[in-house]
C-alpha cells in the first residue's frame, strides 16, 4: 500500500488533485481511498488531502500519520524538519518551488522532485490553479501511473479548461527535475 499526503492551501486545488490521482490509479486497476482534512472552510487555509492506494480494497478507516509520499503545493506551510519527520524512510517528496535542490538541506535523505508549477499553469491559461501541473510532475517523479492514464483522469474530473489542464500536466512532466537521495540529479 502507498500512502500519499497532499499539503496545500484552500483554493490551490490540492483536494481535486488527490481525487484525480485516485481516479488515475483506479483506471489502472488499483483500489484508491481518498480523503481530506480542512483547517477551515475558506480559501488560503491549510488543507491536507490524503490518498491510499493498494491492490485490494483498503480496510483502514483512519488518518495517515506517516506517508510514503508527500506532495507540497505550498512550502510556506511546513518546515523541512516537519516534512522529514512525518515522511517514512525511503519516502518521496514533490515540491512546487522555484528554489534549487541545494537549498533543501534537511531533505537530502529522500528522493525528490522539484517543479515550479505556477508559471506552467499561468502559461497554459489556468491562472493560479496549478494542481494538474503538479500531477504531471508526480507521474514523472514516481512513474507509478502512465501519463496517458493521468490525462484520462484529468479529462474525467476537471470541471473546466480540460485542454489547458492537460497541457499543464504534459509541460510539467517535461520540466520536472528529479533527484535521488542526497540531491543527486537524475535529469
Amino acid at each position: 500500500m502507498i500512502e500519499i499526503k497532499f499539503r496545500g492551501r484552500g483554493g490551490q486545488g490540492a483536494v481535486i488533485a488527490s481525487e484525480i490521482l485516485g481516479r488515475a490509479f483506479f483506471l489502472e486497476g488499483k483500489y484508491p481511498q481518498c480523503f481530506s482534512v480542512f483547517g477551515g472552510e475558506r480559501r488560503g487555509a491549510p488543507v491536507f488531502s490524503f490518498l491510499r492506494v493498494d491492490d485490494e480494497p483498503i480496510l483502514l478507516k483512519c488518518q495517515i500519520k506517516h506517508p510514503d509520499q508527500v506532495i507540497i503545493f505550498d512550502l510556506s506551510l511546513a518546515g523541512e524538519m516537519e516534512i522529514s519527520r512525518e515522511l517514512k524512510q525511503g519516502g518521496i517528496i514533490l515540491i512546487n518551488t522555484s528554489r534549487e535542490i541545494g537549498s533543501f538541506k534537511e531533505l537530502r535523505a529522500f528522493k525528490m522532485g522539484l517543479i515550479h508549477a505556477g508559471p506552467i499553469a499561468r502559461k497554459a491559461g489556468l491562472g493560479d490553479t496549478y494542481n494538474t501541473a503538479m500531477l504531471g510532475a508526480y507521474v514523472r517523479l514516481t512513474n507509478l501511473v502512465n501519463l496517458g492514464t493521468m490525462i484520462e483522469a484529468i479529462k474525467a474530473m476537471v470541471p473546466s479548461k480540460v485542454k489547458a489542464n492537460i497541457e499543464a500536466a504534459q509541460e510539467a512532466y517535461q520540466q520536472t527535475k528529479i533527484y535521488e537521495v542526497a540531491g543527486i540529479s537524475l535529469s
Partner: peptide, 10 residues
C-alpha cells in the same frame, strides 16, 4: 462523519 461520509472509495 469523515471516515465514511467523506472517504472516497470505489
Amino acid at each position: 462523519a469523515f471516515f465514511v461520509s467523506h472517504f472516497m472509495e470505489p
